[in-house]
């Protein structure tokens, strides 16, 4: 590290941001243990990309976290689809499965899994409570167009949701 350049306190950042990162991920993946695991992976990636360890670290972490979460969600959706197609684990759904599939949360997740990735990211981070500026910083978008993009994403979500589960 060069003299004059302030040492980046990785551990402090970790302690400060870990819970936020994990909470962003748990929104998307439901499973708490898995979310914690993924959050650790986000930090591993953070540790390996020195370019990210600057003042914009927070935005980077949000971006990576939401991407990790959505990737996991998509991966899971795809896997269960192929498993069904190939007839692996052909089992009668338990009442628990039926109940959880009917849950509003799972419906929302399945819609997010098929949406365009950028729109899904926007929605997840918005629901996490980020302001427009923070959203723009986290997703590296132009702050001016955030409003438009967000409303488009919301429309897309609504459309997909109604297509799948009907109007409620």
């Amino acid at each position: 590290m060069k003299a004059g350049e302030q040492a980046f306190d990785f551990e402090a950042t970790f302690r400060e941001q870990y819970q936020r990162v994990a909470r962003v991920i748990v929104r998307v993946v439901k499973d708490h243990a898995r979310a914690e695991e993924l959050a650790v992976e986000v930090f591993l990636k953070f540790w390996r990309s020195p370019g990210a360890q600057r003042e914009k670290a927070e935005g980077w972490l949000y971006r990576t976290a939401v991407r990790k979460g959505l990737d996991e969600l998509r991966h899971r959706t795809r896997r269960s689809k192929y498993e069904r197609l190939l007839g692996f684990g052909k089992r009668v759904p338990t009442p628990e499965d039926v109940r959880s599939a009917a849950e509003e949360q799972e419906k929302v997740r399945s819609v997010l899994a098929v949406m365009e990735s950028r729109q899904a990211k926007l929605l997840v981070l918005k629901s996490h409570g980020l302001s427009y500026e923070e959203l723009a910083a986290a997703l590296e978008l132009n702050p001016v167009s955030i409003g438009t993009m967000l409303s488009r994403a919301q429309d897309a979500f609504r459309k997909e949701y109604i297509k799948r589960y009907g109007r409620e």
Binding site: R15, Y18, V26, R27, A35, S127, Q154
Partner: peptide, 22 residues
Amino acid sequence: VDDRLAKLTPEEEWQPHVTTAF
């Protein structure tokens, strides 16, 4: 849409343990 997405919010009592994670 916001209402639907708000359903994803984790329970407040869920506090991932930072020290274990570190």
